[in-house]
């Protein structure tokens, strides 16, 4: 997969922390002791910098969400039913504003499992390496998504 350039910015860290209702000054105030640092799950926000990210509506392209009708596309979109099963981070250091990270994602293992609550489950693993301007590894992220055969039974 193509490499993504992820500039780490203080305003983005503030918005991300706000969404978590996290008022820790190290996400909001440049004069905080130790200076601004990214919260632990901030690497996920690389999606903002992926030009092809499939879960962001784009100009001139049909979007599978509702508008005039409940879905903007015919049939079952293939991005439906993809849930997040696992996420693992390994931190070599924590990103800070001014870092320009290069993120390379590789596909890992794929496996299947039968579930009572959602039918056949297909798990897919993705491993992303976040490197800084010097090529040093900053964060390694391993995510597992699961595609379900049907919506997860809430019973």
């Amino acid at each position: 997969m193509a490499k993504i350039t992820f500039p780490v910015e203080a305003t983005h860290i503030k918005m991300f922390a706000r969404a978590l209702f996290d008022e820790n000054p190290v996400y909001h105030d440049a004069s905080a002791a130790g200076g601004i640092v990214a919260p632990p799950t901030f690497p996920q926000a690389v999606a903002q910098f992926d030009p092809d990210y499939h879960l962001r509506p784009k100009p001139g392209q049909p979007w599978f969400g509702s508008a005039k009708t409940p879905s903007g596309v015919e049939g079952k979109p293939n991005s439906m039913g993809g849930l997040h099963a696992e996420q693992h981070y390994e931190y070599h250091r924590h990103p800070r504003p001014g870092d320009v990270l290069t993120v390379e994602t590789k596909l890992g293992k794929t496996w299947e499992k039968e579930s009572k609550r959602a039918g056949k489950l297909t798990f897919r693993e993705r491993i992303a390496e976040y490197r800084d301007q010097k090529g040093e590894l900053v964060v390694t992220a391993r995510g597992v998504s699961v595609a379900t055969e049907r919506p997860v039974d809430q019973g």
């Binding site: 969404a19 919260p39 632990p40 996420q87 981070y89 390994e90 931190y91």
Partner: peptide, 23 residues
């Protein structure tokens, strides 16, 4: 992310070496 908030409130900032979860 919300769990990470509790984590940094407990352990401090920038000290984690690993954080992994299952939903």
């Amino acid at each position: 992310g919300l769990t990470g908030k509790a984590l940094t409130n407990f352990v401090g900032n920038g000290t984690l070496t690993k954080f992994g979860v299952r939903f």
